[in-house]
Design a protein around this nucleic acid. Sequence first.
DNA 1: ATTAATTGGCGAAAACTTTCGCTAATTGGG
DNA 2: CCCAATTAGCGAAAGTTTTCGCCAATTAAT
Lengths: 128, 128
Amino acid sequence: MVANDSFQPTEVELQMLRILWDLGPSPVRDIHSHLNASKGTNYSTTVKMLSVMLDKGLVRRDETVSPHIYRPAFTRQSAGKRLMKDLVEKVYDGATMSLVLHAIKSMKASPQELSEVRRLLDEMEGKK
Amino acid sequence: MVANDSFQPTEVELQMLRILWDLGPSPVRDIHSHLNASKGTNYSTTVKMLSVMLDKGLVRRDETVSPHIYRPAFTRQSAGKRLMKDLVEKVYDGATMSLVLHAIKSMKASPQELSEVRRLLDEMEGKK
DNA sequence: ATTAATTGGCGAAAACTTTCGCTAATTGGG
DNA sequence: CCCAATTAGCGAAAGTTTTCGCCAATTAAT
């Protein structure tokens, strides 16, 4: 049971995290080339963002090697889960189900995907 | 098929929208008393936020009556849908299904709710 | 070694969000 | 009508996020 002050990476921070999730642990240069490609920011900006994110605990840094290597402080999954929880909280007053229904409705799921959801439902009921 | 520049109400804006969704169309005073209750802001702040939100198109205002009446520019549902889409975009690279699975896993759904999801799945397959 | 190129970081500017003081306009009661 | 109370709004302060210029440190090349 951990304290849960809502987790809020900013826009760019999230963009950066996504790059890291896609690339895996990387030096600034690589991260920058992706960020720059998508929004033309300066190298210094990328370095700074990473240092801000390091302060906030959003990324980790390995300084024993050079160039330094950055990695996300958590997985895409756990970030998604926390962000979703916040969203549900803020929009639906905590009613996760509403959200799920909307998600399902708005996606164009393949039959396999649908059956995967179904499988999960069965599993949950089984456990009950 | 409408253009979709990612929709980003800020923290307080969302809080305000939530109040409006809960209350329905309301005058500033009512909105304020709720906002103030939850975070002790000044009346002026509420008025200002609403005018900023009006500029951004997040709320509508009926000026023919007095006090003016504010209403959200869209439903809780559609906001939820857009925010979710953004989230999925930013975190999962568009893979909605991942999100749904996480949502389902992380919620403590009642049997009724689960069967509602199941019903929806059937419906979707039926339509296919 | 000395120089050139790459990498790392500070501090402050620019941009945006959130706050409120103060004033103007509107309303309701006497 | 006039006054008090409520409502609306402007403009600027305070707080955050995002940006970058400039310099220091590290690495690589001659």
